[in-house]
């Protein structure tokens, strides 16, 4: 199958090889991925809370979003690069992992929500920019955004627990704390 051979090529690429063989690559890239994702969530939350009319209500919406979304996009770019490196290292495993697929769906949903907001609701922003409570469509977009991004983070963490090995310790196992 075309896709499978593409995944195999990706997994055989030099960056993927580096990720698997360099002893510090995985922790540093994963750590940066978590930092980037945490920044995406934290900055988007500020914008979403303004959309919901819950915080920063005395500041114009566009002022809040213009300041924060630059950081969001920078962090998102970093998350994509580090995520792509992690994916390449074990492309086949990730591709077959349900949590990974659901995470991609949640990301897609977050992106669609943002695109719809951008192309429809935001067009009329001049009418509600300084209002403490934005219109219903904006509030719905803010709430959905929080839910989708929380799902992305949970599903991302779930991948690590379903990636083909089980962390559960059998009841009768003797655990050696001395290693």
């Amino acid at each position: 199958m075309e896709l499978m051979s593409l995944l195999q090529d990706l997994q055989a690429s030099a960056p993927a090889e580096w990720m698997r063989t360099s002893v510090k690559a995985m922790p540093l890239v994963e750590g940066t991925h978590v930092l980037a994702a945490a920044t995406v969530f934290g900055t988007i939350l500020i914008v979403d809370l303004r959309l919901l009319g819950l915080r920063d209500v005395r500041r114009a919406f566009t002022r809040v979003s213009d300041e924060m979304l630059r950081l969001t996009w920078g962090a998102f770019g970093l998350a994509v690069v580090t995520g792509a490196l992690m994916f390449a290292a074990n492309a086949g495993t990730y591709y077959g992992n349900t949590a990974f697929r659901l995470k991609m769906l949640a990301l897609l949903a977050a992106g669609l929500n943002m695109a719809i907001f951008q192309h429809r609701t935001l067009r009329g922003v001049a009418a509600w920019d300084v209002n403490a409570t934005p219109p219903r469509a904006a509030r719905v977009a803010g709430l959905l955004s929080i839910l989708f991004w929380l799902s992305v983070i949970f599903l991302a963490r779930w991948i690590g627990f379903t990636k083909g090995y089980d962390f559960a310790v059998p009841d009768d196992a003797e655990i050696n704390f001395q290693f």
């Binding site: 994702a37 945490a38 920044t39 995406v40 983070i153």
Partner: peptide, 12 residues
């Protein structure tokens, strides 16, 4: 996951 969301808020 909750731990990561919280550090996101602290960090940002």
């Amino acid at each position: 996951s909750i731990h990561i969301v919280m550090i996101g808020i602290v960090f940002v």
